[in-house]
Computed example of a mutant assay.
Amino acid sequence: MENDADSALWAPVEITPAAAGAEASARGLVEYLGSLPDLGSLLTREKALVFRGFGVEPAGLDEVMDLLLPHRLAYVHGNSPRTKVGANVYTSTEYPAEYAISMHNEMSYAHQWPARLLFFCETAPLSGGATPVIDGTRWLSCLDPEVRAAFRDGVRYTQNLHGGLGLGKSWQSTFETEDRAHVEAFLGESGATWQWSPDGGLRVSQVRPAIVRHPVTGDEVWFNQADQWHPAALGDDTAAALAAIMPAEELPQSVSFADGSPIPDAYAIQVRDRGLANAVDVDWHAGDLLLIDNVLVGHGRRPFTGPRRVLVAMSD
C-alpha cells in the first residue's frame, strides 16, 4: 500500500487575488477567469482549483459559475439527498453533520457523469466540515492488487426507489419528474434495466465501470461508488440494523460485482478507509470556491459543527 511516507500528496492549486493579480471581489474573479486562455487545460493539469479570498457572495455567484461551468447540469438520477436552490444549483449532501462522507466521484454510478464539479461556501462551519479530495490515480494505487483486480470488470448498482413513501429516495425526486414515460425514456438511453413494483416503486439495475481512463490525460483512476452503496461501509451497527429490517437486494441501494457476485465486506471497507486516509482536506471560508475535474478527483466530507452551507453545481 502506498502511504504518506512514500510520496508527497497531491493537493489542489489555491488561487488568491494576490496570486491572480486581481481585485478581491466577485468582479475581480470574473475578470481573472475571463483573462485565462484555457481554463479547461488548467483544470486538467492541476485537477482541482481553489479560489480563495475573492469574497464571492450568493448574489454574484451566477456570473462566476457561467465561466467555471459552461453548461450546468441538473442532478437527475442522483442518489444523494439535496435541495435545489437555483438554476441547477443544489445544496451539497444533506447527511447529518456528525458523519463523514466517504470519497467518491459524483454520479459515477450513472451512464453519464459530470466532467466538472463546483463547490461554493455560503456559510462556513464552526469546526470541521472540510471537503477532502483525492487524486484518483493515488486512490487506485493505494488499494491492494487483489482489490484492484477484483473490480476490473466493473460493478452492478441496484436502486429501489419508492413511489412517495418509504426508505430512501423516491423515483420522482431522483428523476425530477412525475412522468413515468419520461423516466423510462431516460433509463432506456442509459442501458439500465428497470421494473415498476405494484406499490408504485421502481427498481433500477445498471452495470458500470469501476476503473476508467481520463479522456484527455489517459490516466487510469479509481472511479466508482461501490463502497458507498455497500452495507458494510456504513458501519457495523448500521449494517446490522439494515440487515435486520430487509435483505440486501431490497435496500434503497446496493452493489455487487458486474456478474452479480457479492463484493466482500473487507474490500468495501478498504476502499472507504484508504480513500479517506489518502485525501487532502480543503477547509472552508465563506466565499471560497472549489472546482474539480470529476474523473481525476474524488471528494467527500468531514464531520462538522455549526450551520455549514455549501452549494454545488456541475457541468459536462
Results as ranks from 00 to 15, higher is better:
35 S>N: 12
39 L>Q: 14
40 G>Y: 15
41 S>V: 06
41 S>D: 15
43 L>R: 00
44 T>F: 09
46 E>L: 14
47 K>H: 12
47 K>D: 08
48 A>P: 00
49 L>S: 02
49 L>P: 03
50 V>F: 03
51 F>M: 03
52 R>I: 00
53 G>M: 01
54 F>W: 03
57 E>K: 15
58 P>S: 07
59 A>F: 11
60 G>C: 07
60 G>N: 07
64 V>I: 09
64 V>G: 01
64 V>E: 01
65 M>H: 02
65 M>T: 14
67 L>I: 05
67 L>N: 00
70 P>S: 12
70 P>E: 10
72 R>I: 05
72 R>P: 06
73 L>I: 13
74 A>I: 13
74 A>Y: 13
75 Y>A: 11
76 V>N: 04
81 P>G: 08
82 R>Y: 13
83 T>Y: 12
85 V>D: 09
87 A>H: 15
87 A>V: 15
89 V>H: 03
89 V>T: 09
90 Y>I: 06
90 Y>T: 07
91 T>R: 00
92 S>N: 08
92 S>F: 08
92 S>G: 14
93 T>C: 13
95 Y>G: 05
98 E>T: 14
98 E>W: 15
103 M>D: 03
106 E>T: 05
106 E>D: 15
108 S>K: 04
109 Y>A: 03
111 H>V: 08
114 P>Q: 10
116 R>L: 05
116 R>Y: 06
116 R>E: 09
116 R>I: 09
117 L>I: 10
117 L>C: 04
117 L>A: 03
121 C>N: 04
122 E>V: 05
122 E>Q: 14
123 T>Y: 14
124 A>W: 15
125 P>L: 01
127 S>N: 13
128 G>N: 11
129 G>Y: 09
131 T>E: 06
132 P>V: 00
136 G>T: 00
136 G>L: 02
137 T>I: 04
138 R>W: 03
139 W>T: 07
141 S>A: 15
142 C>D: 12
143 L>R: 05
151 F>H: 11
151 F>K: 01
158 T>I: 09
159 Q>M: 14
160 N>R: 10
163 G>W: 12
164 G>A: 05
